[in-house]
C-alpha cells in the first residue's frame, strides 16, 4: 500500500486546544467538505459534504469496493485525504481528536498480550494512570464476561470473543464516536447478536456510532440514519425510517431490491 500517507508523528497539538478537548463538551457533529482520496489516477473517495450528527447509529451501506472502509478511515484520521477538510468540533483530526474516537476493524486486531492487557493498553495510550487503569480494566473484564480468561493470551480466544473484546476495548476509553467496520462480517449468528447488543447499548449510553455493514437486516436493526455509497460517492444520507421504504438514490434502490451493483 505505497500510497497510504499516514499522519505525521506527533501532529501538533497546542496545549490550549488539548485542554478544550479534555473537557466534556461534544465535538460532534463531524463534518467533511470536498473530501477526496486518490491513488494514481483512481478516485476512491469523492464526497462533497458530509455531516455526522451527535446521536444514534449511522449505518454506511454499499457494495464491496464502494469506499466505505476508506471513508471511515479518513474520518478517523487514519489516512490523509488527497483534498478536503474534516472537522471534529471545529478542529482537524489530530492525535488528540482521535483519542476521543475509537475504531473496530473487520478482523479484530488483538495485541499479543493477555486479554486484560489488551484492555489496559488502550487506556494507557489515553494516558490513564496505573491505578485507575487496573481498576477500570477489572471492571471491564466483569462487564464483558472475560474474568476467567483475563490472563490468557487474547489471540487464543475464538473469533467472536476476540471481536467482543475489540468492542469492549474500543468503548473502554469512553469515546464520543466509534467507527465500526463490518465487525460482524466473519462471525457466526450468536456472536453477531452479541456484538449488535453491545452496539445498541453503547448507542443508548449516548455514544455516537458510525457502522459499515453489508447486511441490510443489521442496518435495519441498528440504524437511525443510513448512508449509501457507490463508486466512492455518497448517493444518499437518509433517516432509517425513510431509507428502507423510499430510498432516494437509484443505486440504493437497486441494492435494497437485491440487485448486484457494479
Amino acid at each position: 500500500m505505497p500510497s497510504l500517507a499516514f499522519l505525521p508523528p506527533f501532529a501538533s497539538t497546542p496545549l490550549a486546544r488539548t485542554e478544550v478537548l479534555t473537557s466534556h463538551q461534544s465535538l460532534l457533529p463531524l463534518t467533511a467538505e470536498g473530501l477526496t482520496f486518490r491513488t494514481g489516477d483512481r478516485v476512491l473517495v469523492d464526497i462533497e459534504t458530509l455531516s455526522i450528527g451527535s446521536s444514534g447509529a449511522t449505518m454506511i451501506l454499499g457494495p464491496n469496493g464502494a469506499g466505505k472502509s476508506l471513508l471511515i478511515q479518513l474520518l478517523h484520521g487514519l489516512i490523509v485525504p488527497t483534498t478536503g477538510r474534516i472537522s471534529f468540533g471545529g478542529r482537524p483530526i489530530d492525535t488528540a481528536a482521535r483519542k476521543r474516537q475509537a475504531m473496530v476493524f473487520q478482523r479484530p486486531v488483538m495485541l499479543r498480550r493477555s486479554v486484560a492487557s489488551n484492555l489496559g493498553f488502550a487506556l494507557k495510550a489515553q494516558g490513564v494512570g496505573r491505578a485507575e487503569r487496573a481498576e477500570r480494566t477489572a471492571r471491564l473484564l466483569v462487564e464483558g464476561g472475560f474474568e476467567k480468561v483475563a490472563d490468557q493470551p487474547a489471540r487464543t480466544l475464538s473469533g467472536g470473543e476476540q471481536q467482543r473484546l475489540a468492542m469492549l476495548r474500543a468503548l473502554s476509553t469512553e469515546p464520543e464516536l466509534v467507527f465500526l467496520d463490518e465487525p460482524t462480517s466473519s462471525l457466526d449468528p450468536q456472536s453477531t447478536l452479541a456484538i449488535e447488543e453491545m452496539v445498541a447499548r453503547a448507542v443508548k449510553r449516548g455514544v455516537k456510532v458510525v457502522m459499515v455493514t453489508h447486511d441490510i437486516g443489521q442496518a435495519r436493526r441498528l440504524g437511525h440514519e443510513m448512508i449509501f455509497m457507490h463508486h466512492g460517492r455518497l448517493t444518499e444520507q437518509t433517516p432509517a425510517a425513510n431509507f428502507f421504504d423510499q430510498p432516494e438514490s437509484a443505486p440504493a434502490r437497486d441494492f435494497l431490491a437485491g440487485q448486484i451493483l457494479t
Binding site: 499516514f6 499522519l7 505525521p8 508523528p9 506527533f10 501532529a11 478511515q73 478517523h76 484520521g77 487514519l78 492525535t95 488528540a96 482521535r98 483519542k99 474516537q101 475509537a102 475504531m103 476493524f105 486486531v109 495485541l111 493498553f121 488502550a122 495510550a125 489515553q126
Partner: peptide
C-alpha cells in the same frame, strides 16, 4: 502491517509504536 491502523487509532504515532 497488522497493528498499524489499530495503533494509530489508539493515538500512537509511527515511532511511538516501536516499543509496542
Amino acid at each position: 502491517a497488522e497493528y498499524r491502523l489499530q495503533l494509530r487509532s489508539f493515538g500512537l504515532s509511527r515511532f511511538s509504536s516501536v516499543p509496542t
